[in-house]
């Protein structure tokens, strides 16, 4: 059986009385490209945020390479309010801030591009190298880390070269065309040396041609960097083309999972996306 890189178990994310993600369990295996799809407001990005540590799940556990990285159960006010299932199954509480999770080898991009706008393309990628540093503030100030710094710069150049961003390396990030900014965001995520890449709607706002390019780009990145990719997307062409497996959620609940063809013909999924006519 394939080794799973990411495993989410019974994750429920509740804000006040609203259950955004309801008892979600899924797995992402090594080398796969897995998509998470669902109608607007289904809780996809919330699930992503729970995985990457932006939110703390109300209940459930998340494993990275079989190691529990996040675990929680309803506490405090949530004890009374909790509407989900599996209460009490996860007594341990493990919290991690996003930076620690990134350090484990999980990098993400954002739905609305979040680049370091005032900095050059080169610096944007170089910053992502900061987390693998061994220098402290004193050695960095007095340039005792010059070897490491040189290595960081070389690796950044190499990455920019592989991802075809070398010709724009000295441009300010926010001046790039939209598609390039998306590429840059992926490049920046790759600079943290991840094993798992989480892409939150990488094709949002792209035209069909750009989407095709992105599909090829993601495949290439996966193969060249030996990555596992987990992505959220609305462009069905891209999803069906690229995914090894698909998970579909609606109102926070998993409603289907499987290979692209299975999902395309799944009545539940069609119902969630198109609705059902009343008079039938």
């Amino acid at each position: 059986m394939a080794e799973h890189v990411l495993k989410i178990q019974d994750v429920t994310m509740q804000f006040g009385g609203v259950v955004a993600v309801d008892n979600l369990s899924l797995e992402v295996n090594r080398g796969e490209i897995v998509s998470l799809i669902g109608p607007n407001g289904a809780g996809k990005t919330t699930a992503f945020n729970a995985i990457t540590g932006v939110y703390e799940p109300t209940n459930g556990a998340i494993f990275f390479h079989d190691k529990m990285i996040v675990s929680n159960h309803p506490q405090g006010k949530m004890k009374k309010l909790y509407k989900g299932e599996n209460n009490g199954k996860y007594p341990k509480v493990i919290r991690k801030t996003p930076d620690k999770i990134t350090r484990l080898g999980m990098a993400r991009t954002f739905q609305n591009i979040r680049l370091f706008k005032s900095m050059t393309v080169f610096d944007n990628v170089l910053i992502a190298k900061h987390l693998r540093r061994t220098s402290n503030i004193f050695t960095a100030t007095f340039r005792l880390n010059y070897k490491e710094e040189k290595k960081m710069r070389e690796e950044t150049m190499e990455l920019l070269r592989i991802l075809d961003l070398l010709d724009v390396k000295d441009e300010i990030a926010s001046s790039l065309p939209y598609g390039k900014q998306r590429h840059l965001e992926i490049a920046r995520a790759l600079a943290t040396n991840p094993e798992l890449l989480l892409l939150d709607e990488p094709a949002a706002g792209m035209n069909p041609q750009e989407t095709d390019e992105l599909t090829a780009f993601i495949r290439r990145v996966r193969d060249e960097f030996h990555l596992t990719v987990f992505l959220i997307e609305h462009h069905m062409n891209l999803v069906m083309d690229i995914s090894d497996r698909i998970y579909v959620i609606d109102f926070g609940k998993l409603i289907a999972s499987g290979k692209p063809q299975e999902i395309q013909n799944n009545p539940e999924v069609i119902k969630a996306y198109l609705g059902v006519a009343d008079d039938e």
Binding site: P98, T102, R103, A107, R114, L115, F116, K117, L131, R188
Partner: peptide, 10 residues
Amino acid sequence: DDEIAAEAMG
């Protein structure tokens, strides 16, 4: 420039 992105970059 961007706190959330900075944190996501480790």
